[in-house]
Simulated scan of single mutants.
Amino acid sequence: FLAVGVNLFYFCIIIYLYGDLAIYAAAVPVSLMQVTCSATGNHSCSVGDGTKYNDTDKCWGPIRRIDAYRLYLAAFTLLLGPFTFFNVQKTKYLQIMTSLMRWIAFIFMIILALIRISRGQAEGHPSMAQLSGIRNLFGVCVYSFMCQHSLPSLITPISKKKHVNKLVLLDYILILAFYSLLSFTAIYCFRNDTLMDMYTLNFTNCEIINVAFIRYFLGLFPVFTISTNFPIIAVTLRNNWKTLFHREGGTYPWVVDRIVFPAITLIPPVLVAFCTHDLESLVGITGAYAGNGIQYLIPAFLAYCSRKDTQLVFGSGTVNKHLSPFRHTFWIVFVLIWGFSCFMFVTANIVLSEPKL
């Protein structure tokens, strides 16, 4: 890449991380609000019963649900925001614990949904197709590419990369199977109008599971996992800002390095979360715009430029035994067209849908 390409790369990464932080900053207060607020006196059993609550409904006494959400957001910011001003290191065991909790939560949700379906208590009756959902589908699908974050850690330790293509294919098949299992059990277990943006909250209903510990574990699952990831992503975003403006041999003044960069990292996503807690829209927008650039546009241009550079360095007759089956230029063009389609569909979804933000 030339300097312009590198800057665009950092720009996409920064916007994507901002979207991540905004989603995280909204998800934790939403989960806490849903679990702790009570419109019927026992919210731990009613949050997933299909009842739709408005932001103006009472939470505790005179406190409205939206007020509780913003109080939780303020507490979340005050507790985790300061980590943005420091470096986060030695997170190995923290990430292991987070991954373990994710696996436990996912397995719980899949098993509980399958049990409910097997007992004939499933409420979901999905239609064969719903064209109105295509627009937002693109953004959500792009955002699901987060599974690719783990691919380098799978490929790097492999010394003999003879079968690396098969291993990557197997990895993607397993990811697709897991996504499909979680998604299809959800759409057949719950009615479409009762499915919540935060899927874990659907399992806080006593009719789904009468074990209080599991209900609260799933209801508060985003609080535990997202709270551990928020500081790491915030520090990553701050460092990307520093790299974007870094000049060879230059250093930043203390105020810029320690105050300005952390502040511009933390304040925008918190403001977005303060204005909206519509997770579906946040995920769709983040995936369709920043995620689109990261997954489709930048890799396509990078592959094209890398192939040209390789031919100049090694000559056109050199054969790479690790060539991708998608090495033809057609696939680069196809990816660019697909990325542009995602951009157009989600933009149409934002323009045509009733605004919720």
Rank of each mutant, 00 (worst) to 15 (best):
L8S: 06
F9D: 12
I13V: 11
Y16E: 08
L17Q: 07
Y18A: 09
L21F: 07
I23G: 00
I23V: 10
V30R: 04
M33L: 01
Q34E: 08
T36A: 01
A39F: 04
N42G: 10
S44E: 09
S46T: 14
K52N: 05
C59K: 01
W60E: 02
D67L: 06
L73S: 00
F76V: 03
T77Q: 00
T77K: 00
T77S: 02
F85V: 05
N87F: 09
N87Y: 09
Q89S: 06
T91G: 00
K92M: 05
Y93C: 02
R102P: 04
W103P: 01
I107H: 06
I110K: 02
L112K: 14
A113W: 06
I117E: 01
G124A: 06
P126I: 09
A129N: 12
G133P: 02
F138Y: 10
C147N: 04
H149N: 15
P152I: 08
S153I: 12
T156F: 08
P157V: 11
I158A: 10
S159Y: 11
K160S: 11
K162G: 09
Y172C: 08
Y179F: 14
L181E: 12
I187R: 07
I187W: 04
I187N: 05
Y188N: 02
T194N: 02
D197Y: 03
Y199S: 12
T204P: 01
A212E: 12
I214E: 08
N229T: 15
F230Q: 02
F230N: 00
F230H: 04
T236R: 00
T243F: 15
L244Y: 09
P253Q: 03
V256T: 12
I267A: 05
L271H: 06
V272L: 11
A273C: 11
F274N: 07
H277M: 04
H277V: 02
L279I: 12
E280G: 12
A303D: 13
A303I: 15
Q311A: 13
V313H: 06
G315V: 08
G315F: 06
N320E: 12
N320W: 14
L323Y: 12
S324Q: 07
S324D: 12
P325L: 03
R327A: 15
R327V: 14
W331N: 02
I337F: 07
S341P: 07
F345I: 03
I350A: 09
V351W: 10
K356I: 09
